[in-house]
Simulated scan of single mutants.
Amino acid sequence: MMKPRCGVPDHVNGSGTNLPQNHKHDYKSFETVAHYQFIRGTPRWSKSHLTYAFRSSVQVPASLHMKSVFQSAFQRWAKVSQFSFEEVPANYYADIVIGFHRLNHGDGQPFDGFKGVLAHSLPPSVGKCHFDADEI
């Protein structure tokens, strides 16, 4: 994860890593562009049993499939960490709130529409994980 990839700079907390532009790929290679930032400090959960809920401001056609994808991911994390995860109804308090949104969705970090920012999340003290509903 920490290795620069494919000649495209990784932006880690505002700094970029530049690789030579003559980096070539063959037809079998897989290219990924990573633009991400880490949350400053060392935020941690103060408990090991975490609840999660889905709260979106827009209808997402694949949301039922997405729920199973998240459930599978949480099961994998539970196997290799000290955490356990439990889905709760949308109207319950949840440690982690997963949502699909478009453009300005009220958290001060509006999405930019199709192509660009795919998602953002906030530290454990807030526990929000937002995905741009305009992305495929």
Rank of each mutant, 00 (worst) to 15 (best):
A62F: 13
E86W: 02
H130T: 01
A133M: 02
T42C: 06
H49L: 15
R44E: 10
V69W: 05
R102W: 03
T32F: 14
K79Q: 15
A73R: 04
T51A: 00
H65A: 11
N13I: 09
S63R: 11
Q82R: 08
P20S: 10
A53H: 02
Q109V: 10
F100L: 04
V8L: 03
T42A: 11
D10I: 15
Q37D: 15
P43M: 03
N91R: 03
K3N: 07
H25A: 10
I39F: 06
H49F: 12
H35E: 13
R44Y: 05
S72C: 06
F70I: 08
D26M: 08
S29F: 04
H105S: 04
H35G: 05
F85Y: 15
F131G: 02
K3Q: 14
P110A: 06
P61A: 12
D107Y: 08
A34D: 13
Q59F: 10
P124N: 02
T42Y: 09
H23N: 06
C129E: 03
P43Y: 03
A62H: 07
G108Y: 02
M66S: 09
H105W: 04
S125E: 15
Y36I: 09
I96H: 03
Q82Y: 04
A62M: 09
Q75N: 12
L19K: 03
H105D: 04
G99N: 01
A119C: 11
M2L: 12
F74H: 05
V12D: 07
I98V: 12
H35R: 13
D107L: 13
K24M: 12
T42H: 11
S46C: 08
S46G: 14
R102G: 03
P9T: 11
V117A: 12
D95C: 03
V33A: 12
D95Q: 10
K28Q: 14
T51W: 00
K47F: 01
P123E: 15
F74Q: 03
P110C: 07
E135Q: 15
Y92K: 12
V8H: 01
H25Y: 12
E87T: 01
I136H: 08
V12R: 10
K24V: 10
D134S: 13
Y36R: 09
F100P: 02
V126F: 05
D26W: 06
K67M: 14
R5F: 11
S125C: 07
C129Y: 09
T51H: 04
A34E: 14
V69I: 13
E31W: 07
R55W: 01
Y92Q: 10
N22K: 01
W77K: 05
G108A: 01
Q21D: 08
T17Q: 12
G99V: 04
K24S: 11
K115A: 15
H11C: 07
V117K: 15
S125K: 14
F83D: 05
F114W: 11
F100E: 03
K24F: 11
Y27T: 13
S68G: 07
D134G: 03
A34N: 13
A73N: 07
F111N: 05
L122F: 08
Q71A: 09
Q75R: 12
M1K: 12
V60F: 15
Q21M: 12
K79E: 07
G7I: 01
V126T: 08
Q59W: 11
A94N: 01
Q75T: 08
R55F: 02
D132K: 01
K67Y: 13
N13C: 10
K47H: 08
R55D: 02
V58N: 00
A73T: 09
